[in-house]
Amino acid sequence: MIEAIQESHYYNSLPFLLKGLRWTAFITFAGLFIGFILGAIFGLGRLSKSKIISTLSTVYVEVVRGTPMLAQILFIYAGLTKGIIGFNIDAVTASITAIAINAGAYIAEIVRGAVYSIEKGQHEAGRAMGLTQRQTMRYIIWPQAFKRMIPPLGNQFVISLKDTSLLSVIAIPEIVYQGKQYYNITYSPFQTLVMVCLLYLVITIPTSLYLRRLERKLDV
């Protein structure tokens, strides 16, 4: 029995896939880190009183949300760099950029929604005491809004994690790419892809469960 498992493709594909998991994790975290910064900037940008800033932010969000992620990846990797700048950026940089820009747009909506959901009276109370706009944001609005952002941000983490699988088209050796390499050599697509999916589920299901608990705890 144990021998049978050890000789199966379920077992043998795992080291390859785990190698892919490292890339998947690295690009997800790096991309989301930058994506959060972008999201905060453009999310607040959408709420800005300045027409130029809010329009720019809206254009960014709508362009990203209205185009397929795959096209965005290819655009950043091939379209922009080879086509416009004239030199190559490596696939990893392109990948992190793509995840960051894509997640940034969705996070911008999360930030905007959370800030917008804080009662207007909170802002007024701060300003009425003599706090500046910036201080009111920093000490009153942002801490409350951030709490409301946590569940949807966790959701975005799961989405971006799965989106990294698209990076296989630019030969990032993440989980799906590794799986494909493995089954092309061993002719074991079924077993390998079962393992690929399990590997994602091992991360996504606990995350979702944890988020649901957190949501109840935060009462948002």
Partner: peptide
């Protein structure tokens, strides 16, 4: 200023 709905900071 004191508001109808208090507007205390809940956090």
């Amino acid at each position: 200023m004191v508001f109808q709905h208090f507007n205390l900071f809940p956090h």
